[in-house]
Design a protein around this nucleic acid. Structure first.
Length: 124
DNA sequence: ACAATGACATAAG
DNA sequence: GCTTATGCCATTG
């Protein structure tokens, strides 16, 4: 199996997102050092187990819209989970996030380095 | 190692 | 602002 370094990092980062805050796929990828690796982040969450402790619902698209590619059912659930944490939506199911909104979480620098920086070798 | 896939992002119409 | 087309990355067959 290959539940590996990259996915592990995505999970670790998503777990650090506080309630009421959100993060985009692209932003996560950029934090991991792969600015164009948004799809890979989505793939990591796709392989995530339903009972996982990773708050996958706090990850949205850069347009402030919940992914519909997965299952419409879950999209509705994701919206409910976010609303429960105080995240506000528009009538068109898109988040009220702008280029400079505060709900887009950003980790403290020390934690950022500890998280994204040099990770213990887990390859092979 | 090559080809295909997929919870995305960006550019163009 | 929305839809379509192309690009990117990691994972899987």
């Amino acid at each position: 199996m290959a539940a590996l370094n990259f996915n592990q990092r995505v999970y670790a980062l998503v777990r650090r997102i506080p309630p009421g805050n959100i993060l985009t796929y692209g932003r996560i990828a950029q934090m991991l050092g792969v600015p164009r690796g948004a799809r890979a982040v989505g793939w990591a969450l796709n392989a995530l187990a339903p009972n996982s402790d990773v708050p996958w619902y706090r990850v949205v698209t850069v347009s402030g819209r919940i992914t519909e590619k997965f299952e419409p059912h879950h999209a509705d659930m994701q919206r409910a989970l976010l609303e429960a944490e105080g995240v506000q939506f528009d009538d068109k199911d898109h988040l009220k996030i702008r280029r400079h909104n505060a709900i887009i979480w950003s980790p403290p620098l020390p934690e950022y380095v500890d998280l994204i920086g040099d990770f213990p070798g887990e390859q092979t």
